[in-house]
């Protein structure tokens, strides 16, 4: 019995390790390619390990501007800040204020989060042309804020539902107004959930490709710039492409390792509920 058990555990763990190696191999290959010489990238036998060289990054630095990175940072930080500031009170109101059509309003907010981007892109595109916000950082910021809003509401709503109302009620009885109870009691209590939600939309916005690709051309963000390597057709510059891809991947990776608890909670929240 105990030998069988031991074999079972060993098999299970081996399976996990093998799966993990396959799972992360694409990431390893990306990092490897980013630090390879062109000779190694275009060798006819696979090169599995190299001494890292920075040639590809230097090539990037010589041939590209920092504008896409700058646009990305501006758009992401602004839209995440706007969505979090506007979204947290919305979630609170939906969780705590009783009113007749609450279920309908809630359904509307949640359903906007599931709107397929391809259904919105055409009207957004035409509207942006008419209000002269096409190919601008401002236009992109507005759109991203609106897209991120329901995500924040969705994650925080689940949290506020789980949170007992008694603490706020005690504060109200002691003379706090509704919103000062919210800012002094509820926000500190829900800070970790707000951080989790904000990190999630930070990553989603940082990675976003579709809207940025369609709505901007010269004032574009980093993912679109990186993607332009692939669109180059014959003989793309694989080394610099991998290096650029790695630059795009570093911030989410840092978030994943340093904020892993938040990230896990945030992604669970994405599905409409947090685990305890």
């Amino acid at each position: 019995m105990s030998t069988r058990r031991l074999i079972g555990i060993l098999t299970g763990r081996t399976a996990l390790v093998v799966l993990l190696i396959f799972w992360l191999f694409p990431v390893y290959w990306l990092i490897l390619t980013a630090f390879k010489l062109k000779v190694d990238i275009q060798s006819s036998d696979p090169v599995w390990i190299v001494t890292p060289v920075l040639d590809n990054f230097i090539w990037l630095q010589q041939n590209f501007t920092f504008d896409p990175l700058k646009h990305s940072l501006i758009v992401v930080f602004l839209s995440v800040a706007i969505a979090t500031l506007l979204g947290a009170p919305m979630a609170y109101a939906l969780a705590r204020f009783p009113f007749k059509q609450r279920d309908d309003v809630e359904f509307w907010v949640i359903s906007t989060r599931m709107l397929p981007p391809e259904a919105l892109i055409i009207p957004y595109y035409v509207i942006m042309i008419h209000i002269h916000l096409i190919n601008t950082v401002t236009g992109l910021t507005i759109i991203y804020s609106a897209i991120n809003l329901p995500v924040i509401v969705w994650i925080l709503l689940a949290f506020y539902r789980m949170m007992p109302a008694s603490t706020e009620e005690a504060a109200r009885i002691d003379g706090c107004s509704l919103w000062s109870a919210y800012f002094r009691i509820v926000i500190p209590m829900s800070a970790s959930s707000i951080v989790a939600a904000a990190l999630i939309i930070w990553i989603m916005t940082w990675n976003e490709f579709f809207f940025s690709f369609v709505l901007t051309s010269s004032n574009t963000t980093l993912p679109v710039e990186v993607a332009s390597f692939l669109a180059n057709g014959f003989n793309p510059q694989y080394g610099p492409m991998a290096a650029a891809g790695l630059i795009l991947t570093i911030p989410p990776l840092l978030i994943a390792f340093f904020g892993r608890q938040y990230l896990i909670r945030g992604i669970q929240g994405l599905a409409g509920g947090e685990a305890r």
């Binding site: 694409p26 990431v27 990553i203 993607a227 991947t249 994943a256 992604i267």
Partner: peptide, 18 residues
Amino acid sequence: LILFLLPMIISPVVAALN
């Protein structure tokens, strides 16, 4: 979990590039 989650937090652009 965080190691298995990595593909999800990587940009779809980088995934395609990979």
